[in-house]
Design a protein around this nucleic acid. Structure first.
Lengths: 341, 341
DNA sequence: CTGTTAGCGCGTTCAG
DNA sequence: CTGAACGCGCTAACAG
């Protein structure tokens, strides 16, 4: 096993025949350094292969060049894309990314917040599981580093945010189904503790109202973000005496669960039921027939979030909001029974 | 914005009326501490809400309680599952996980290795992009922390590894296709710089040989792990004068690319072509008709890798190899043209 | 059993 | 323009 001799500033200083502070000056290019000294220091650095110790730098400076990222499920391609986009930007800026996995348990959000703050991260990228948890808000208030919320909205908190326009996407999706003649449209979405869920529900309601369609509470299922919920809800909707002819699923977990339920029942999308997913994941279109989606660019969201964080760290920006557009993409659908045109 | 007063050991010591070292003794339960002192220290800790600074602890102890993880694409659910499994185990053991994204560029493997080592991570989880890169091997030799390879094999390196049995899975898959009567079977897989690719090719060759089938070099495409390669290769195979009747794709990227190509061409899996993916991703089965897969439990691989790392760190284990089984799951297929039975 | 002291490696005051 | 000295917060020697 290789053993690298630990080469410190002191070693470099001795090698160059100067004081340690001079080495530090050169490396952090603090003005007023003579060319001769600079050259000798750089030569010594090169010869010894010196590299400053980030841990010592962190203790001294208070900055760790580390960002903490909190997401529900890093294996979920939605969050994977966010993390990937963020990591790309942060890496290029010299930051490293710590990840988490809160997995449906809101207390783990709090745990990770406290853990990352204790580790003195320079910033936090947050895709929280709920926006109204008191413990979580209290934990975030302790933060002395910039915070960026990813598609979340916690009022009264000093944080930036990257927000998606879910409303427009759902309105377009439902509008399209209505135009096809659907009158019984189901919605499976998350609980209102997350802005995305509220916006989806609001878009759903407004689109129906605009079309003069009645609200059918039994066709709306709001629950925890888990494939099991999407699965169970889809089965319940299919078992209704008067089942929906079209279904909008408001998150990738729900989409997964719903597709599995439809698959089990042998219900063919586009042939027997119109299905729209409110999160475009790359592979959804590969279904046969393809699934219609409301598309969001998750990598871009991570990208923007990291960018916002870096700009705040660099003092170039104060907390602000960055909107991310949403596009509705129609891929396949079917007219409801009894509709002629 | 909340401003937490930094409470140090010194503050706790003064509050309790003892020396700083006594505080340290109590917290790290170094033997020989009187109950009275312990109680007073613990009380002061509680009252002040003291929490040790991990950065200072790291500088002092040399350990950062941080693990670096190197993967090609964290947004890929395959790697996402690995990272998730590893993070779960590491978090419970008090470690945090730094992630990366090497994205097809082998030099980024080297960059991240050097970055993480400079940051003094306590261990490295490595899903490398090639096993034979000299710079990468040189970088890893500099490591003084334990290394765990994830489904990779770098001979001559002091590292543990979690390995999948790809061979058996591909043999089962090809064997099944042969039993159905297929005689022209295509393979899309990675280059031999990664053990997984070599094992898949070896399994493919042996299964064909065992069936007394000729080797058809034009049906085997080995290339970089990218959806584009799977896509282009699939189109090339379809365009052959004598195209394959069945296709085995040896990695999730290739599967993605191939499915997209088949979708574009309107080729129906199970109706016109048998398709087997060598990496089961949760959602593959949701295709209609379902796709046959060679299943691997990626989360378990991350789990085992992290466990191996922790055991090595705890001195409970020396570098070793942990095998992960592979299962072939048949979901749908089609007999080749001209086969009656 | 407990207190005093010396660094871990770095950046940054201050004098010269 | 350069060097000497201090301290970030903690742990581990070494004394008492």
């Amino acid at each position: 096993m290789g053993r690298a001799e630990k080469v410190t500033v002191r070693a470099v200083a001795e090698r160059a025949g100067v004081a340690v502070s001079s080495v530090s000056r050169v490396l952090n290019d603090h003005a007023d350094v003579s060319d001769g000294l600079r050259a000798r220091v750089l030569a010594a650095v090169e010869e010894l292969g010196y590299q400053p110790d980030p841990v010592a730098q962190s203790l001294r400076s208070g900055a760790t060049r580390t960002i903490g990222c909190i997401v529900r499920d890093i294996a979920n391609p939605l969050f994977g894309d966010i993390v990937k986009g963020a990591e790309n930007v942060l890496h290029d800026a010299g930051y490293s990314l710590l990840v988490s996995n809160t997995d449906g348990d809101i207390r783990r959000d709090v745990d990770y917040i406290e853990l990352f703050l204790r580790r003195r991260v320079d910033g936090l990228l947050l895709s929280l599981q709920a926006e109204d948890n008191a413990d979580m808000i209290a934990a975030l208030r302790q933060a002395s580093c910039p915070l960026v919320l990813l598609d979340r909205d916690v009022p009264g908190l000093s944080a930036s945010a990257v927000l998606c326009d879910h409303f427009t996407g759902i309105v377009a999706a439902v509008g399209h189904l209505v135009a096809l003649g659907h009158r019984r449209i189901g919605l499976i979405a998350g609980q209102p503790v997350i802005r995305a869920s509220r916006e989806r529900k609001r878009g759903f309601d407004e689109a129906l109202a605009k079309a003069g369609l009645p609200v059918a509470p039994e066709l709306v299922r709001l629950g925890p973000y888990a494939a099991e919920f999407g699965h169970a809800s889809t089965l319940e909707l299919l078992d209704l005496a008067d089942p929906p002819t079209a279904l909008v699923a408001g998150g990738i977990q729900f989409t997964m669960g719903s597709l599995r339920a439809l698959h089990e029942r042998g219900v063919r999308i586009g042939a027997e039921l119109s299905f729209i997913s409110a999160d475009d994941i790359d592979w959804l279109e590969l279904h046969d027939p393809p699934i219609s989606v409301v598309k969001r660019d998750h990598m871009r969201m991570g990208h923007l979030g990291a960018d916002l964080l870096l700009r705040t760290l660099g003092g170039e920006a104060h907390p602000c909001f960055e909107p991310v557009g949403t596009t509705y993409i129609h891929r396949a659908s079917v007219q409801p029974p009894g509709v002629s045109r």
